[in-house]
């Protein structure tokens, strides 16, 4: 049976797997952003805590995805929930790091000028620091999303479903069509997500920073 015939007969299964995959990735990304961006902002206000948290985050990031999922399985059991928790936990790290460094690298000239014209701390954050750091934050989100989509395929191992299920089943019964039916949509999904976030990143780069780059 050729790959196209396989797709025709099992179209529904592939679409369902894709849908589960997208849901799982979106949900994890959403929570990761909601946790990591405020946490990153908070860290810029507490230098000592930042050093420790970022050092720990650096070590946690070297733990392989399969291991993290295994730990999730041992603590929370089988299913989609443990996978989503693990995906969130891992997705938080790149966004946290980029939010922190993005805001830290805002030139003091700008924040001092903002204070000088009478902005409150909150205004400095929302009107000066965050807009300048936004491209860096979005770059962090791109990293996280690509990781999350990648790890979500592994999450099939602990019963989360999604496109990884097709790859897994295909690998264990050596069904090439099934492997491709999982692997190709998963790859396209990750590439598409990366591309879309690149567009967002261009859109959120402040106008002043864009022209500066063009002149260089």
């Amino acid at each position: 049976m050729s790959f196209l015939e396989y797709l025709q007969t099992d179209w529904q299964a592939v679409m369902n797997a894709l849908l589960v995959h997208v849901q799982m990735s979106l949900l994890s990304t959403l929570f990761a952003v909601l946790i990591a961006v405020p946490a990153g902002i908070l860290l810029t206000r507490h230098e000592k805590a930042a050093k420790i948290v970022l050092a720990v985050a650096g070590v946690v990031q070297t733990i392989p995805g399969l291991v993290m999922l295994g730990i999730g399985l041992l603590i929370f059991g089988l299913g989609m929930l443990p996978s989503v928790i693990v995906l969130i936990a891992y997705g938080v790290l790149p966004i946290l790091q980029n939010t922190y460094t993005g805001i830290r690298e805002v030139d003091r000239l700008y924040t001092e000028a903002a204070r000088g014209i009478g902005m409150t701390n909150r205004q400095v954050l929302t009107k000066v620091e965050l807009p300048i750091a936004l491209p860096a934050i979005v770059a962090g989100i791109r990293l996280s999303v690509v990781y999350i989509i990648s790890w979500a395929t592994l999450a099939a191992l602990i019963g989360a479903g999604g496109l990884g299920d097709l790859i897994w089943t295909g690998l264990s019964c050596y069904d090439t069509n099934m492997i491709l039916a999982g692997a190709i949509p998963a790859s396209l999904l990750a590439i598409l997500a990366g591309f879309l976030i690149d567009l967002v990143q261009k859109a959120v780069t402040p106008r002043g920073m864009k022209t500066k780059k063009g002149e260089e």
């Binding site: 995805g65 690509v146 989509i149 990648s150 790890w151 979500a152 395929t153 592994l154 496109l163 990884g164 790859i167 295909g170 690998l171 492997i179 491709l180 999982g182 692997a183 190709i184 998963a186 790859s187 990750a190 590439i191 990366g194």
Partner: peptide, 10 residues
């Protein structure tokens, strides 16, 4: 960008 499991399987 290709998920690691997908790339390895292919």
């Amino acid at each position: 960008t290709i998920p690691s499991l997908a790339l390895m399987a292919m």
